[in-house]
């Protein structure tokens, strides 16, 4: 998508962001754009503030400076109603799923539907059933409580809840962490399929190199309190920054590249 430059609309626009906890500065002067219809992968070492960036964008962590615009709305200055309008257009998948443990999976998915749309219950049940199936869960999972599900199924259930209101923008915090490679690959596939069929824009925080190769259109690298590189994987790989070189050039980085078959020759040459 980057190549043909077809996207013009910026869904998320972060400018000069500064966040801090007490005296510890997490981000400083951070700029980031997410375009309509792309999957952006945000990578970075532990503690570089990937999750904090996501929390800042969705309004859970108040920045100390800078502006964040989502769908063109400056979240910090918007009034309550505009903000609610924006919130209904995005879905968030938290790292640990954050399913309500006292509700069944179906009730979890129905919660935002009932709360925001007030439909007849039967319609909400139908919508929830569809989302649960779309997230790749068997139908009988609907009546189960989160504690009865495996880690991968919890992630899927949380995804179903994130998709409940047909969001245009999806935030995923390490969606494949803790999944086995097969489960993770299926999850990547699911995200790409959903993006394609529903026209989603996805902001994904991840560590998973395979996910980056399999799912992401663009990659943003977080280091030194800001985004040091942003572009397609090939572009980012070309960046000489030592962390990037170590990340993509390490054993795992080359393995992920080789398995994807993209530039396998290059990887082989590097290996020699």
């Amino acid at each position: 998508m980057t190549e043909n430059g077809s996207h013009t609309e910026k869904v998320i626009e972060v400018r000069g962001l500064k966040t801090q906890f007490g005296d510890t500065v997490i981000h400083e002067n951070l700029d980031l754009d997410v375009h309509q219809g792309e999957i952006l992968g945000v990578v970075g070492g532990s503690g570089t503030g990937k999750s904090v960036l996501m929390r800042a964008i969705i309004g859970l962590k108040r920045p100390s400076a800078g502006s964040i615009r989502v769908f063109g709305v400056d979240y910090l200055e918007a009034d309550e109603e505009t903000r609610l309008g924006v919130e209904r257009r995005w879905g968030v998948l938290f790292q640990a799923g954050a399913l309500f443990s006292s509700l069944t999976v179906a009730q979890n998915v129905m919660a935002p539907i009932m709360e925001h749309l007030h439909p007849p219950r039967a319609l909400a049940v139908d919508i929830a059933a569809m989302k649960i199936s779309m997230a790749g869960l068997p139908a009988d999972a609907g009546a189960k409580y989160p504690a009865e599900l495996s880690g991968g199924m919890q992630k899927r259930a949380a995804l179903a809840r994130a998709l409940a209101l047909d969001p245009e923008l999806l935030f995923l915090d390490e969606p494949t962490a803790g999944l086995d490679p097969i489960g993770a690959a299926k999850f990547d596939e699911l995200i790409v399929n959903l993006k394609r069929s529903l026209g989603l824009t996805v902001f994904m925080v991840t560590h998973d190199l395979d996910t980056l190769h399999a799912a992401c259109d663009r990659v943003a690298v977080l280091a030194e309190k800001r985004v040091i590189a942003c572009g397609s994987i090939c572009e980012v790989r070309a960046n000489p920054h030592p962390w990037i070189q170590e990340y993509f050039g390490g054993v795992r980085g080359r393995a992920a590249l080789a398995s994807k078959g993209v530039g396998a020759d290059a990887a082989r040459q590097e290996a020699q």
Binding site: A106, V125, M130, S133, A143, S197, L198, G199
Partner: peptide
Amino acid sequence: PPHAALLEQVGEHIVPCPVEPA
């Protein structure tokens, strides 16, 4: 076309699903 794609995508997922344990 976009609606057709949506209808097709959704068509695979019309599965009734229990909400609570029986």
